[in-house]
Design a protein around this nucleic acid. Structure first.
Lengths: 154, 154
DNA sequence: TACAGAATGACAATATGTTGTCAATATGAA
DNA sequence: TTCATATTGACAACATATTGTCATTCTGTA
């Protein structure tokens, strides 16, 4: 089967895309491993971290994480059932309650973040900080580039 | 809540990780959009592409894509039910049949790849090829760095 | 104020992916 | 050759996430 022709730039972007997706799968697995000793997962950790950063509604967290709000709602309800977060009245919105960490949630998040710090320090030491920063910057620019046309497509 | 201290390198790596995961989610969404007109998804596309690249067993594809073989099996069975792939006898292994694209599968993959080429060309043109290549190289090095300790952890 | 449109949570269906288990099959070392 | 070990597909349970729909609540505008 003949493959459609791509420009050299197109080839570069395609290879870049596949690398990002593949590495992301591995990084998520790492996140799960970091969260597991606390009985949590990568997804729950992200919601805990978002709620810890600022009191937000489920829909707010969905926007920040780039996830559908329904998925975040599912995680948040599970975290509430486990006593790691609670819903607080939102003076600005009757339905959109604010997600707040309980003290148990704070402890759990702190445990995960402690493991994450050791992990990030060890891996960060294997690379030149300048390379990581330059790479992160390109990733951010691509994300911007993606966000623009995407808005007009939906 | 006090956050655990990280080294500067650790901070850089943590920021890098989050960027990768976030961009990956967006790129997967792009892949779904590219595959959708052919009635497919990003995951099915990846399996089709792997099978097209070389005749492999389900477990082989899982390794290449970095996914559990059970997940790939599920997709492959769906693709077989839709007539896009078929299982062929593997002379080297009685159980591990080889995944082969049917002509319908070839056509479907080609349609998706045609759309992908236009997409990659357009986005590739927005960036310096050298930046993309350097970034891809760092991503590959991180993947390597992750693969090494991971083996000893499991 | 009134009301159209957006945002939100609830609910359901579906897609993707991991983990665990089991039996069948390969593989490699003694 | 024999046998412990690894690989593989099948099956099941579960976690994650998207899409779609609906009623409720908010918001901005006329």
């Amino acid at each position: 089967m003949k493959k459609p022709d791509r420009t050299a730039a197109g080839d570069a972007f395609a290879a870049f895309s596949m690398s990002v997706i593949r590495l992301s799968a591995h990084l998520s697995a790492e996140g799960d491993a970091l969260a597991k000793p606390s009985g949590q997962t990568s997804a729950r950790w992200q919601v805990l971290a978002a709620a810890s950063h600022a009191n937000m509604s489920v829909a707010d967290i969905g926007r920040i994480l780039g996830l559908a709000r329904q998925g975040v709602q599912r995680i948040a309800d599970l975290l509430e059932a486990e006593g790691l977060v609670r819903y607080e009245e939102n003076p600005a919105h009757q339905r959109a309650k604010l997600l707040v960490l309980t003290s148990e949630g704070e402890t759990t998040l702190h445990d995960i973040q402690t493991r994450q710090a050791a992990w990030a320090d060890a891996l960060g030491a294997e690379f030149r900080a300048e390379d990581l920063r330059a790479t992160t910057e390109v990733l951010a620019r691509v994300l911007d580039g993606l966000a623009r046309p995407k808005a007009s497509r939906r």
